[in-house]
Computed example of a mutant assay.
Amino acid sequence: MLRGGNLHRFANPGQFLRLAARVQPWLTWSAVLALAVALPWALLLSPPDWQQGETVRILYIHVPMAWLAMGGYLGLAIGSAMALVWRHPLADLACRELSPVGAAVTALCLATGSLWGKPMWGTWWVWDARLTSVLVLFFLWLGHAALVRAFDDAERGARMGAILALIGAVNLPVVKFSVDWWNTLHQPASVTRINAPGLHVDILYPLLACALGFSLAFAALVLARTRAAVMERRIRALQLAAARRADQG
């Protein structure tokens, strides 16, 4: 079992930068190649749905964004817990750089959901449990991104943001199970059902390919932002040290 000291060893900024420098190109190019295959397959080559017609193509963007919005927030909550409990050196920075990306994918989830809802439901928006809980998730992402940047003391901002992230995690089960707990317009899960997926393989496979590509792109973007934040912090520390030496000299 990893103890706090081991976690700190794995989170050493120098080791992180060396590892990230090796992983980043592979992650980025994997995302590019996956999306280069997945998006034409989904948006151009896959057949229209027998009920939804061509509108089903919106779901190739909407569903992966929904998964990333929830999975990313779970990662934010885990990183926040690590930052609060173990004072993980990189956890605060990673969470700080994760929240704007999470807010962006949640916004895309809401926007594409509205585009799909208009022809399917006859309205851009309804205040049902699934849509409302995802909107709350979007505000939680925005709240974290704003809160960690709202204080002159970066450590205090990170701590407040971590507390908000952990409190907001109670919304994740609501998002996931809202269609089962309440009567909503939003359809229940089609891909993750235990008995069998509710989608034909001609739609399921390109959907999963898009999910893989967008997940790789999400990870690559968060990693790149975290690398840049670590390097920026190191540069500022060097500048501060140089200024102190100059004052002493």
Rank of each mutant, 00 (worst) to 15 (best):
E54F: 02
P173R: 08
G53F: 04
L212Q: 00
D92F: 12
M160L: 11
R156I: 15
W125K: 04
D202A: 14
G157H: 06
H62Y: 05
N6T: 09
L84N: 09
S133D: 01
T106K: 13
L240S: 02
L74K: 03
P206E: 08
L68F: 14
T184E: 10
W125E: 03
Q248R: 15
L90D: 11
S215V: 04
H62G: 07
S133G: 02
G157I: 07
Q248D: 12
W26A: 14
T132N: 04
L164K: 12
F151A: 13
W127G: 13
R156P: 07
T132E: 05
E54C: 00
W26N: 02
L204M: 04
A129Y: 03
H8Q: 11
A243H: 02
P188D: 04
W41S: 14
S80K: 05
V63Y: 00
D247E: 14
P188Q: 06
A94Y: 09
F138I: 06
K176F: 10
A158M: 08
R156C: 12
R22T: 13
M1G: 11
Y60W: 01
A69W: 04
L33E: 01
A162E: 02
P119K: 15
H186W: 11
M1N: 07
G71V: 04
V105M: 06
G102W: 06
P25Q: 10
A31M: 05
I194F: 15
A38Y: 04
A246E: 15
C210G: 06
R245T: 08
M231Q: 15
R156H: 15
A111H: 00
R57D: 06
L39V: 14
A129S: 07
S30C: 10
R22F: 15
E54S: 07
P89W: 13
T28N: 03
P40V: 10
R57L: 06
N183R: 15
S30V: 00
V126D: 03
R245H: 13
C109F: 05
R96A: 14
L221Y: 00
A104T: 05
G4P: 02
F10A: 14
D49V: 05
S46A: 15
N6V: 13
L204D: 06
V175F: 01
R156T: 15
A42W: 13
I203P: 01
H144K: 01
E155T: 14
V101R: 07
R227W: 04
M160D: 00
S178C: 10
L93H: 12
P47I: 10
D153Y: 11
